[in-house]
């Protein structure tokens, strides 16, 4: 079985095995009885049948016993869920944003990343939101899952019990690259985490430093590279590689025209993606991106750098 890495793993697995064991007992019992009857009362062995029309005692027994058992199962599932929904007061909070097709994690200090880093042993509350359609935030190793619903904030919490790297998946169908809406969670020891967290900063990425490097971070963080590759490989949208300075055929209001991909075109494409759609990709909807002018400048610089 899949190893567990959060405090919920045993809760979920125990409930699962509790039901599994009862199920196996019933399954084996019923199938064995059935096969035994088929052999024992095969018409070659038994000619005289007993037309038993029913038995009230038996009916009551096999109504009451399953009822009691399933109530036990309900209780087991309920206590696990109850724990999952009641967040401890000392939980640290992280905002998880889902969009087609990437996850962004925002920490309390404003730092943003596309992979999640959490300390071992501390309660972490993830506030989940979606920018477009419904996604579902799923960490199998932690046994947690919650939908990201546009217009509605949801949450989950967990306490990691093992250090290591675990998969994050999207489990609500969200379009072409649903299967690639992946990320990872890295669980560090408390001290490693504190060191790592101290090194992060919630400053705007564009503040200070190399604009092109900031742009590189931004295209990852904002999910651009979910659709636009940076190495020229085909994805559902034009690759960024060698894009800047190219002449491209676009559709503007349904008419074909040639444009030079320059600063102005890039800025417009980010703010109004539907205005000029590149030929061959005219049916792919891209949502307008709420980026600041600085961020757009940084991305433009980055695009210039990948020839």
């Amino acid at each position: 079985m899949l190893s567990g890495a959060s405090s919920f793993a045993s809760l979920v697995d125990d409930a699962f095995f509790f039901i599994l064991i009862i199920s196996i007992i019933f399954f084996v019992g019923i199938v064995a009885t059935m096969l035994f009857f088929v052999v024992r009362y095969h018409h070659t062995r038994n000619k005289k049948v007993a037309n038993i029309e029913g038995n009230l005692t038996l009916e009551i027994v096999w109504t009451v016993i399953p009822t009691l058992l399933v109530m036990g199962m309900f209780y087991y599932g309920f206590i696990g869920y109850d724990t999952m929904r009641n967040v401890p007061d000392d939980a640290m909070e992280i905002t998880v944003t889902g969009r087609k097709w990437s996850w962004t994690f925002t920490y309390e200090n404003g730092f943003q990343a596309t992979t999640l880093t959490v300390p071992k042993g501390r309660a972490v509350k993830a506030n989940i939101e979606s920018e477009d359609v419904i996604h579902s935030f799923y960490i199998p190793a932690f046994r947690v899952k919650q939908d990201a619903v546009p217009g509605r904030d949801t949450y989950l919490w967990f306490r990691a019990t093992e250090t290591g790297t675990f998969d994050i998946l999207c489990t609500e169908f969200c379009g072409d690259r649903h299967a690639y809406m992946l990320s990872t969670v890295e669980v560090m020891s408390e001290s490693d985490y504190n060191t790592w967290y101290a090194g992060t900063s919630g400053e705007q990425i564009t503040e200070g430093g190399d604009l092109s490097a900031a742009g590189e971070k931004l295209v990852t963080l904002k999910g651009c590279i979910a659709c636009h590759s940076i190495d020229g490989s085909p994805r559902i949208s034009p690759s960024f590689k060698g894009l800047y300075g190219k002449m491209e055929t676009v559709y503007t209001d349904g008419k074909e025209r040639q444009v030079l991909i320059d600063d102005a075109y890039i800025a417009k494409s980010i703010k109004e993606p539907a205005a000029d759609k590149v030929k061959g990709f005219e049916n792919i909807p891209m949502p307008p991106q709420p980026l600041s002018d600085d961020e757009i400048k940084a991305i433009t610089e980055y695009l210039k750098s990948i020839k």
Binding site: F8, L11, V12, A15, F16, I19, L20, S23, F26, F27, V70, M73, F74, Y76, G77, F78, I79, G80, Y81, T83, M84, S136, Y138, P140, R143, V144, K145, T171, E172
Partner: peptide, 18 residues
Amino acid sequence: LTGLMMAAISVDVHVHDT
């Protein structure tokens, strides 16, 4: 019987949509 497993909420949180 596997339906019972998924009816139990905590288990379903893990296996839902898988």
